Computed example of a mutant assay.
Amino acid sequence: MEVFAVPGLPEVEAGDDLASLVDERVRLRSDDVVVVASTVVSKAEGRRASLDDFAAGDRAEAIAARLERVTGESKDPRFAQAVIEESADLLMEAPFLLTRTRFGHTTVNAGIDRSNVPDADLLLLPEDPSASAEALHRDLGVPVVVTDTSGRPFRHGQRGVALGWAGMPASRDWRGERDRDGRELDVTVQSVVDELAAASNLVAGEGAGGTPVTVVRDWAFGDHAGSDELYRDLDGDFVQQALREWQYQDS
């Protein structure tokens, strides 16, 4: 498998044809997968925002005041309001805002970015990353994965994760297949879109030197069943259920 960055992409602006920008810079093969950072998808879709777009309500004021008390850092209640409006649910309000987006992703601050956003305060996640991936897939003719970076429980650091995908299943479903000893697998579902996102993030990088689009070449899904169940439903998400019952105790 080879992963390489698409070179020479300009700063993406609202209304830009992202598929054309990619197609002009790389000759894609039919078996390629294009992996796109959600930041450039959001920029093309006009998801830049100003803090002044979010008039802080009582809940946002209370959250910002509590976070300031807990962390000792100044917190803008307008940012808290933006997080509230971009979230389907707030799982934690302290010591940080842990949220579930409308499309099912659990992340800090609703995935709102405050870096690499020229001429704006905030960059919001795409409203529907799988729909964004579907549009790019239709125009480019190859599978597309839209990604972000986020941390995970029990580990330091961040890694690439998939937010949306099109043209391929999210997961390889190994259930019913056999291991090397002939035992039938009954629980193994491999999230390939997350694994491709993480591999691509190694090449794309972070910060000022980051490149927002990569191509995965010579990788094949293989002869496996596919699954698109990436985000857990609440009924089967015991961690999320526990968080709903947990309260952070201010010192």
Rank of each mutant, 00 (worst) to 15 (best):
R155T: 15
H156D: 15
Q158P: 03
R159G: 11
R159V: 11
V161Q: 04
V161S: 05
V161C: 04
L163S: 09
L163I: 10
G164I: 04
G164C: 09
G167L: 01
M168L: 13
M168I: 09
P169S: 03
A170H: 11
S171Q: 01
D173P: 07
G176Q: 08
E177T: 13
E177M: 12
E177D: 08
E177F: 12
D179A: 09
D181S: 14
G182S: 08
R183Q: 14
R183P: 03
E184T: 15
E184L: 08
E184N: 06
L185S: 05
D186S: 09
D186N: 07
T188V: 13
V189H: 04
Q190P: 00
S191L: 07
V192D: 02
V192C: 04
V192E: 05
V193D: 14
V193F: 03
V193G: 13
E195F: 08
L196V: 11
A197F: 00
A198S: 14
A198R: 10
A198F: 00
A199W: 02
A199G: 12
N201P: 00
L202W: 01
L202T: 10
L202F: 07
L202M: 13
V203E: 03
A204M: 14
G205N: 11
G205R: 09
E206Y: 15
G207Y: 06
G207H: 04
A208V: 04
A208E: 06
A208M: 06
G210V: 06
G210E: 15
T211S: 06
V213K: 08
V213P: 09
V213Y: 09
T214N: 14
V215H: 05
V215S: 05
V216A: 14
R217H: 12
D218Y: 09
W219Y: 07
A220R: 11
A220E: 08
A220I: 12
G222Y: 09
